[in-house]
Amino acid sequence: MRRLLRHKLFVTGSILVGLVTFGAIFADLLTIADPTRMSVRTRFEPPSLEYIFGTDNFGRSQWARVLYGARLSLMIGLGVVVLNAIFGTLVGALAGYFKSLDNILMRVADAFMAFPVILLAIGITAALGPSSVNAVIALAAVYTPRTARVVRASVLVAREMEYVQAARACGAGDWRIIRRHVMPNCMAPLIVQLTFIFAYAVLSEAVLSFLGLGAQPPTPTWGNIIAEGRQYIREAPWITVIPGLVLAATVLGLNLLGDGLRDVLDPRLKVQQ
């Protein structure tokens, strides 16, 4: 833990992610404006004391929209991470532990990974219909093979350790070995991977929303705020630029967080800070 706090990049990342999370959780305390209420008189207000992030083409408070958008974007990211953790661990553990399943599961994973991430996600959401729940499902499906590969790799290592042999020599069953001996020793790379998946998911969700495949207007997400603002980018650049910056900061923060965790959790990659 002390090593984490000394890791400058990790601290920077935590602050960025912390701020966004704070904004998302306390969105209703940080603004009294309704993110969906339109007002003709306040269209295209530039950032000011009254409208911190300005207003958009419908006169809605951008501050409120970005905060509430953060809520949805992070929820979707979290949803993807949770599904990923469950299925990625399951598939990875099965493939890594049981040699007979390895080939089948990993070839399926390869098939998924052969498609570009966004293209596959677009395909799945298009098939399921555009909504934020379907975006979560699509992104989870797209990223699960990646997590599964990471888990499988560490399971392959942990499985061969002598403490697994020792447990087997006492008659421990496969389930017990996976639960007590293999998985606890695979957590570090999994946590790091999930942090990165969180970042990718937030970014990809913005892409899907931008394309109109995520949450539907008027519900704000970063992607659709940017999409709506892009027609006015010359007259009112703040509509696109601010959520874009917030998105970039969040993804950067999560990536730094992941890097920091990796450096600290993986003793083989000990880096001088």
Binding site: E162, Y163, A166
Partner: peptide, 12 residues
């Protein structure tokens, strides 16, 4: 076992 490092689960 031979390896006193590999034969004990570090998380137990």
């Amino acid at each position: 076992f031979q390896d006193p490092y590999g034969s004990l689960n570090p998380r137990m």
